[in-house]
Design a binder for these strands. Structure first.
Lengths: 362, 362
DNA sequence: CTGTTAGCGCATTCAC
DNA sequence: GTGAATGCGCTAACAG
């Protein structure tokens, strides 16, 4: 049982192969009568162009490649998953396919990218999780392989390099908004629970908290430092660290965290200390945060995906354009603050346990 | 800057195109001297076969398609993510690519599969999350499209249909082992926290608990029913439900749960009731369980991925074989019990908060 | 507006 | 062992 080809359609519709091709690719150039006849034949045979042949002919694959991270660290692992989903969905709408690959190290990733490109399997790549001194962008630019990164080029001065297309979430602004929401509610000692610097993403997020605290309360460096806790991204470690904070001299009346992992630790510590009333805001809006009623800063991954494709393909295109063809080569997405009230969940609140739990608005 | 082709390699090595092709595909049939010369030319030009051309010629894509689930099934969402990673990794080792697609409904998924197949984009499909009266396998068999499902064909009598290749995790056996581990430790009233039937997966898992309780303690239906709690897969709901259990007449001395989501609810309820000592075992071994020190039944997703590929490609092959070519058309993977001690995490345990948290062995 | 010509890069016959 | 044809299915360029 062979799949029908242009030839079959042409024979059925009594036209030449090329007319069929025209009907599919440039229908405007075909006389309405024959157009209809050919389309009928296409439907009759349930014909679809063979993509391999089309790709070979057009010298492009209409496929973008993305690496699946090795082992996504803990609770925030779902972020890439959601991004992948948005990206696939929107790529499909634009007539592109998404091809997966894995690599344990940046070097290995480069090898994979080279293989994929050399095999003409992939037209462009989406890189995630950029970091300080990331070797990948430079190599890709040098190789003239189109790409876009989810994440800014950190540490280098080429934030505006048109060669390097990037989309990122404005973590600073998200944390700024989160902090303001606590200050607006009357908090005066909002603590920051973040990662030990230097981490590009973490430092950026912390600066949002700093800005808000400076602007609203006029705090100085020393005061900020006293409200700032640094701990690696681990629930147990965060629990310990925040417990110490809560046992300290200056009791915070709000906590903004660099991740939901830290926020979960903060929640556990606060609950244990009987201070479930201290509002906590995390980052990433993971399912865990939703399940536990923790407020969080949500990365709008659908917008990130849309931005990545727009940078790669142009506003409406369906094939990869050169990096110089766009006026802007980057996009900063504003995150959304998802506020949840602690009482949405009966955690550590025996009085509500027999009541009806509020549904999680997701 | 054109990519090198066989022609370029042939010219460089001073042989014909076909010899180059032979060097790549059947190196045994080439004289060692020319072999070396051609290989040197390949390396020199950094030549790689164009995959589109190869696919067109061979009439196969060496690509498998998998749908990215729309629903982020809460805390357990990462399961598909991990499976995808294993699958991609092992597929790459076998020279296959993994192509993603999305679909909101089974019907839409069928449309996507048809498009992908008709475009000769994909040789075979991996379906996840099979369910009762799943329309997809039947349609795929009818269309003669090779596929394998992660999940048994539920509800039908074709568990052994060689046309339907499937891999699944033996949930019953995992829960059985989990229950036994509690009984071995001296528990006598192990409760089951599961989903309201009928859910194929959930009922299967529950039967593991039932079997263990019957065998070891000789319990009857009524006694089992009194230890069985049914609640939808939601943390808040589970918290309520387990809180009621803990406030009831028969206090369980262990809890085995159908998911980590339920286990998290159980943990919260137990903690709130001051009964953190009651051991809890979840299912899926999610990052959350790891972070909170909850024991869990781990699906060995690397084995599932390996099984899926073995069923599709044969033990060592790199191209899809017909469904009748294998002696067995399915594989049941035994899950692993991951036991964690509650004290691994200082949750709700103020006395340990200033101590060193034990590292999580993952 | 339609049909003719000519490959895209590769692998599978066959001869030699 | 190696090399010469042939065509996979499609579309871009050019004639008509």
């Amino acid at each position: 049982m062979r799949l029908p080809t242009v030839e079959d359609v042409a024979r059925t519709a009594r036209v030449s192969r090329q007319t069929v091709s025209n009907v599919i690719n440039t229908p405007a150039r075909v006389k309405p009568a024959t157009l209809l006849r050919v389309q009928a034949a296409i439907r009759e045979l349930d014909y679809r162009p063979n993509q391999s042949a089309r790709r070979l002919r057009q010298q492009k694959s209409a496929t973008i490649g993305i690496r699946l991270d090795p082992q996504l660290n803990g609770i925030s692992g779902a972020v890439l998953d959601r991004f992948l989903h948005s990206l696939t969905e929107q790529a499909t709408e634009r007539g592109l396919r998404v091809l997966l690959f894995t690599a344990a190290t940046p070097t290995e990733e480069i090898d994979q990218i080279r293989a994929l490109r050399d095999g003409a399997d992939v037209d462009a790549f989406v890189l995630t999780a950029t970091f300080d001194h990331d070797p990948r962008p430079e190599w890709l630019i040098e190789q003239k392989i189109p790409f876009v990164t989810f994440g800014r080029p950190w540490g280098i001065d080429d934030l505006n390099d048109p060669q390097h297309r990037w989309v990122d979430v404005d973590g600073r602004r998200g944390v700024y908004a989160a902090t303001l929401s606590l200050l607006d509610a009357g908090a005066e000692r909002v603590a920051w629970i973040g990662w030990p610097p230097p981490t590009a993403t973490g430092d950026d997020r912390r600066s949002g908290w700093e800005d808000a605290m400076r602007e609203r309360l006029g705090l100085g460096d020393a005061e900020l430092a006293s409200l700032c806790t640094e701990v690696v991204d681990d629930v147990a470690e965060a629990t310990n660290a925040v417990a110490n904070v809560l046992a300290g001299a200056v009791l915070p009346d709000g906590m903004v965290c660099a991740s939901d992992t830290l926020a979960l630790g903060a929640l556990i510590a606060a609950s244990t200390a009987g201070r479930r009333d201290i509002p906590i805001i995390g980052f990433d809006d993971t399912p865990v945060a939703a399940a536990l009623g923790i407020s969080s800063v949500e990365q709008r991954l659908d917008q990130v995906a849309a931005g990545a494709l727009a940078l790669l393909l142009g506003p409406v295109g369906d094939s990869v354009v050169a990096s110089g063809a766009l006026d802007v080569a980057h996009r900063l997405i504003e995150p959304a603050l998802v506020l949840r009230r602690p009482q949405d969940l009966p955690m550590f609140n025996p009085s509500r346990i027999d009541g009806t739990a509020a549904a999680d608005k997701h």
